[in-house]
Design a protein around this nucleic acid. Structure first.
Length: 472
RNA sequence: GGUCCCAUCGUCUAGGGGUUAGGACACCAGGUUUUCAUCCUGGUAACAGGGGUUCGAGUCCCCUUGGGACUACCA
């Protein structure tokens, strides 16, 4: 079965990691079956519409490499189609106009809730006489169109790709609005017509849509269409098991781009939120192209998954370490244009030495600080706990003396050199390695002295070592 | 309130009647002859509870408990 899927976001903000995970699954389900992945912008809510949001959607998808097949469909360009379809339903007496004011609806709902009854529309306008209807239409009273929930079937069930058979009684469904008083359609109606016309045969969406799925199936039936297959994804939650929201930190996918997460790590992390290759596999590092081969929507879990930042950090660090230093340097320059100003050879050395310490690209900024300007440090830090003032000074001085013009090519050269210094002066590692390292980095934690010498170069190394002797 | 859904280490998960319940993150300990990171080794840690079915139940059924979603002129 070739799946035609779609990602159908509403341009109301910055795409959420949960939505993007759904898009990923849409993409993979399509690609794994040699089908297509389509994009549709659901911009029927004019009040919540934010113009930049469309751009954010494209940015989010392209960052992760989730390319859609064909042009994006905009619902706002299809108004007439929806309106005609609504008229068709009206003509077939499967829908009706409702002139109830928002105020009446609100107070009705309040009252029903107070008495512990389900807050459903009372079908007041379904009982309107023809005369009243004509009168209201003539007076141009504002109205919405509601879909009439039929008497039968009494329940709707479907075979969900992830949840199995789901059954919901139709009596809990209210006559929902399909056309708003501004004569724009609601999601309830528009997405069905679009999915049908776009040939969507697998709808992947969040679990929150499970309760309303029967409404949509009823609409398909009203038009005499087959409904697509459904796969309702488990939710992604925050650490406190609540729906992921702003108070959990960053929730939009572009936040993670800005923080220096790698798209391939993000994808790998996201896909395991609710999916795994099964069959006892313990492999957990997958590229997009591998996923495109092996992904199966049937392997998606039912239980919600918690978005665990620590695991993402680990995975991102892993992906960073797996990059060649040259690639990582390119990524860094792409990530932050400022790095373009740094001498490329110097930057590459810096990257080689610091690569294993990076969890995100953004961390590079702080980590690289000390290479450009020596941090202020306490002179006591120069003396290691297994050394003393005299030997430490001797160690640094000996190093300074031994630095020649010959060994700046490799890190190994310096390891050897430092080793000789220890041996020749009857010192210990603690008298040489530690103080030289502190003198060069100005920090208690840093790469090895050999690495630092190699990165900093002769001039800067000498300057820093001399400073250390001076303050010691 | 009503409808629906979910339940294996703290977290992501494997497992689908017979397992010492596996892997990974995080955490802890040790090692890699200076620190940190990396890397390696080891360790702590889970089938929510109760009933069934069965010779045998994380695994199937029921109930309880806990969690969640939905109940808009939002999608």
């Amino acid at each position: 079965m070739k799946y035609i899927t779609r990602f159908a976001p509403s341009p109301t903000g910055n795409p959420h990691v949960g939505n993007i995970r759904t898009a990923l699954f849409d993409y993979l389900a399509a690609k794994a079956t040699k089908g297509s992945f389509l994009l549709r912008i659901e911009d029927t809510d004019r009040e919540r519409f934010v113009p930049e949001a469309v751009d954010y959607i494209h940015q989010s998808l392209s960052w992760l490499g989730l390319k859609s097949d064909g042009e994006a469909v905009y619902q706002s360009a299809r108004l007439k189609i929806y309106q005609d379809k609504v008229q068709e339903l009206l003509d077939k007496d499967l829908a009706y106009k409702c002139f109830c004011s928002k105020e009446r609806l609100d107070s009705l709902r309040l009252e029903l809730e107070k008495t512990g009854k389900p807050p459903m529309y009372d079908r007041c306008c379904l009982a309107l006489s023809d005369d009243d209807l004509v009168k209201k239409e003539k007076a141009k009273e504002p109205f919405v169109v509601r879909f009439k929930i039929p008497e039968s079937p009494v329940e709707i069930s479907w075979k969900d790709k992830v949840r199995g058979t789901v059954t919901i009684p139709t009596k809990v469904l209210e006559d929902f609005i399909i056309l708003k008083s501004d004569s724009w359609p609601t999601y309830n109606l528009a997405h069905i017509i679009d999915d049908h016309e776009m040939g969507i045969n697998l709808v992947i969406r969040g679990e929150e849509f499970v309760p309303s799925t029967p409404k949509y199936i009823l609409i398909y039936q009203a038009f005499g269409w087959d409904h697509p297959e459904y796969a309702h994804m488990p939710l992604t939650l925050g650490k406190d098991h609540k729906k992921l929201s702003k108070r959990h930190g960053d929730t939009s996918i572009l936040d993670y781009k800005e923080k220096g997460y790698l798209p391939e790590a993000m994808i790998n992390f996201l896909v395991f939120l609710g999916w795994n290759p099964g069959e006892g596999s313990t492999k957990e590092i997958y590229s997009l192209s591998e996923l495109k081969q092996i992904f199966n929507i049937n392997d998606v879990n039912k239980a919600p998954a918690i978005f665990d930042l620590e695991r993402l950090d680990w995975m991102n660090g892993l992906y960073i370490r797996n990059l060649s230093p040259l690639e990582l340097t390119d990524r860094l320059v792409l990530f932050n244009q400022d790095y373009k100003k740094i001498d490329r050879a110097f930057l590459e050395r810096l990257v080689i030495v610091e690569q294993s310490r990076l969890k995100t690209l953004a961390e590079f900024k702080e980590i690289s600080q000390a290479y450009f300007s020596l941090p202020e440090y306490d002179k006591n830090m120069l003396v290691f706990k297994k050394s003393n003032h005299k030997d430490t000074k001797k160690g640094i001085e000996a190093t300074l003396e031994k630095l020649s013009n010959n060994e700046w090519e490799t890190i190994e050269n310096f390891e050897e050199l430092l080793g000789h210094i220890v041996h020749d002066n009857e010192l210990t590692n603690a008298d040489v390695f530690w103080p030289v390292r502190v003198a060069l980095s100005g920090k208690d934690k840093s790469p090895s002295p050999a690495e630092l010498l190699w990165v900093l170069g002769k001039e800067e190394s000498v300057r820093r070592l001399e400073k250390a002797i001076k303050i010691l």
